[in-house]
Nucleic acid binder design. Structure first.
Lengths: 333, 333
DNA sequence: ACGCGCTACTAGCGCGCTCTATTGCGAGTA
DNA sequence: TACTCGCAATAGAGCGCGCTAGTAGCGCGT
C-alpha cells in the first residue's frame, strides 16, 4: 500500500480511502491510484483490514460435507451476504472434524457471526455458542438455545403432501422416518396428525430410517419382503427426504413396482435429485435461497443492533407435484 | 491478551509465547496463564496473528458446490493440513459466483496457497494465478499452467475397467463421455485405446454426456430407443463417472433391463453413490484422501521452499468390482 | 571476585490497514 | 480584505498479535 502511495505521489491514507470507495478523493487521483495499484499488483489485505477496522464484516458458515441441501444453502448465502456487504468464510464438519472444531476455526478467523447449517451439536453447546457470538441455526430448532432459527414449517409441508395423497384416493400411506435428522420429528408428528385427521389412524405406520438413500433402499426391501409374506404394499409412501425417496424408488423399480402406477412416492427437500428421474419426483420444496437469505439477514441485523433478541423464521414449504404421485391403484381403490 | 497478561501478572510477550506453545515459560506460569485466559474467555485472534507473523499458514480451498467428489477431497484436506500445522479456509464457486471470485476471496484472506478442486477456469487464468501464488489443481491437468497437479491415472483406471469387461466376454462396450469434466478427455482416449488393443475398434462408440445423473439417463434412453428400432443394446457401458452411471442404471432399471444380467455398467469415482444399490456399483476408485494429502503436501512444500517447481502427482486408481458388472449375456455370447 | 551459560521473563517495534482529526487551498460571501 | 465553507489530501494513532533483542537471576567453575 505504501508502494502504491509513493508511486502515485499520494499518502497511504488516500489510497486507503480509494480502496474503500469512500468520498474524499478526486476522480483523477482515484483513477491514477487504481492504475498504479494494478500495475504493481497490489490488492488490499483482508486480514489487516479486519484488524484495523475492529469489525470483520465476515460471516462464518459451518456445514456438513455430504449434505446436498447444505450446498443449496451455501449457494444462497453468498449473494445475500455480498448484498449486505459481508464476506463469507466456510468451514466444514467432517467425520474427523467435529462441529465445534469447525466453528472454532471460523471464530478464530474473526467471523462476527456463525451460520450453522443443520447443526447436530447438543443444545447446551449451541446455547453457549449463541451467547458468545451471534449464531443462526438453519434447519434445526433448539428452542432453549440463544440463537436465531430458520427452518421451514415441516408440518405444513407434510400436511400438503398428505392432503394431496388422500385426495388421490390413498389410504394405506406409510412414512419413512428421518431419524435424528433436522425436521424429522416435526415431519413424523405431522404425518401422524394428518393420518388421524383423515380418519386413517388404523393405517398409520412409520418405518424408522434416516436421511440417506440407504434407508430408502432398506425400507423398500422391508416392504417388498412383507408383500411376499402376504401383507399388502402401501399405496403411497412419504419419505423422510429426497435421498431416502430416491433410494426407495431404486428398490421399487428393481422389483418391478411401477411408480406412480403401483405406488406413489413423495420426497422432501426438492433437491437436485428431484429432477433426475424422467418423470420427476413429487416432493416438498424448501426454498433454500429464501432460507439462506433469512439466515444471513438475521445474523447481520443482530450484529448491527445488539439489543435484538434471537428470532425465528418459519418458511412455508410448498408441495411440488411431479411424476411420482398418482391416483391409487385400481385394485386397492 | 493484555488483560490476560495483567490478570496473570506477566507480560504480553509471555502470554504470546504460551499460546504459541513455545519454550520459554515455566510450567506453573503456563498453567496460570491458560487458566486466566479461560476465565475471561480469551482466544487468540487469528487475523492479528497472520498479520504479525507475516505468514498466515493458511491454505485456501476452492471447490464447486454440488460436486460430490469434492466433498471427499475436503474431508481429506483437513487432517493433512492440520498435521502440517496449516489452517484451511474454504470458498465455494456457485452459479452466481465464479471460480475467480472464490479464489479472490481466499487470497484476500491471506491464504498462502490455493488448492483448486476440479477447476474449470481457462489455462491462462490458472497460469497467472500460479505465478501470483502457490496453486495446486486437483483432478484437472493443464500442462501449460504454472501450478502443481494431482490427479489419477485416468488411463490406468479405464484400462482396468475395460480389461475386466473384456475378460467377462464383453465386446459391444459403449462409453458415455464426461464432456468438459475433469479427466474426461483422458478417459475417452483410454477407452478408445483399450477398444483398439482388444481388436474391438469396430464396436467403438462414445456417447456424448457430462458428469451428471441426467446425462446417464439420457444416454440410457438413447440406447433404449435405438434398441426399439432394431439396434442391439451394448452388453456393457463404461460411464463417465458414478453419477452418470447411476442415472443410466435408473433408466435401465425402469425399462426392465436387469443389471448385470442383461448389461454391465461401470462407473468412475467410487463416490458414496457406489454403495447405494443393493448390489453395489462396479467403479474405479480414486483415492480422495490420498489425492488430498498430495495436494496439501505439494502446496506446503512449495511454500516452505520457494525454489521448488510445480510438480505432478499421478495416483493409481483401482477398479472396485461390485455387483453391476457380470458375464456377457447368453444371447450375445 | 569474575565471567559463563542457562532459564524465565520483558520491552517495544512493526505487520498492513482504518479512522479521526487536521491541514491546505480555492471559491463564495459580506 | 477577511471570513467561512467544502473538498482533497495527510498525519499519526492503534487494531491484536509475533518476534527480536534484550534483562534479571541463578548455579557453575576458575
Amino acid at each position: 500500500m505504501a508502494d502504491v502511495a509513493a508511486r502515485a505521489g499520494v499518502s497511504r491514507a488516500l489510497v486507503s480511502i480509494i480502496f474503500r470507495d469512500q468520498p474524499g478523493a478526486s476522480k483523477e487521483t482515484r483513477e491514477r491510484v487504481l492504475r498504479v495499484a494494478d500495475e504493481i499488483g497490489y490488492r488490499p489485505d483482508n486480514a489487516a483490514r479486519l484488524l484495523a477496522r475492529g469489525r470483520s464484516r465476515t460471516l462464518g458458515v459451518m456445514f456438513t460435507v455430504h449434505q446436498t441441501f447444505h450446498t443449496n444453502l451455501i449457494a444462497g448465502i453468498y449473494p445475500e451476504a455480498e448484498r449486505l456487504g459481508y464476506d463469507v468464510l466456510l468451514s466444514a464438519a467432517t467425520r474427523s472434524r467435529d462441529e465445534a472444531k469447525a466453528v472454532e476455526a471460523l471464530l478464530s478467523h474473526r467471523c462476527e457471526a456463525v451460520i450453522l447449517l443443520g447443526p447436530d451439536a447438543e443444545p447446551g453447546y449451541l446455547d453457549a455458542l449463541g451467547r458468545r457470538t451471534v449464531a443462526v441455526s438453519v434447519s434445526r430448532r433448539v428452542p432453549q438455545a440463544h440463537v436465531d432459527f430458520v427452518h421451514s414449517a415441516e408440518g405444513k409441508g407434510v400436511r400438503q403432501a398428505m392432503d394431496h395423497l388422500v385426495e388421490l384416493g390413498h389410504r394405506r400411506i406409510v412414512h419413512i422416518d428421518g431419524g435424528q435428522g433436522p425436521g424429522s420429528a416435526d415431519r413424523r408428528r405431522a404425518y401422524r396428525a394428518a393420518m388421524r385427521r383423515h380418519g386413517l389412524q388404523a393405517e398409520l405406520r412409520v418405518i424408522p430410517g434416516d436421511h440417506t438413500e440407504q434407508s430408502g433402499i432398506e425400507a423398500g426391501e422391508l416392504l417388498l419382503s412383507e408383500r411376499d409374506s402376504g401383507r399388502p404394499l402401501p399405496t403411497a409412501v412419504l419419505a423422510g427426504n429426497d435421498r431416502c425417496a430416491w433410494g426407495l424408488l431404486m428398490a421399487l423399480t428393481r422389483a418391478g413396482i411401477d411408480v406412480p402406477r403401483d405406488m406413489s412416492v413423495i420426497g422432501y427437500d426438492d433437491s437436485h435429485l428431484s429432477h433426475l428421474m424422467p418423470i420427476g419426483l413429487t416432493t416438498v420444496r424448501q426454498d433454500a435461497a429464501l432460507m439462506a437469505e433469512h439466515a444471513v439477514r438475521f445474523a447481520v441485523e443482530r450484529l448491527e443492533d445488539e439489543r435484538l433478541e434471537p428470532r425465528e423464521a418459519v418458511l412455508d414449504p410448498k408441495l411440488v407435484v411431479r411424476g411420482t404421485s398418482g391416483p391409487v391403484p385400481e385394485a386397492s381403490a
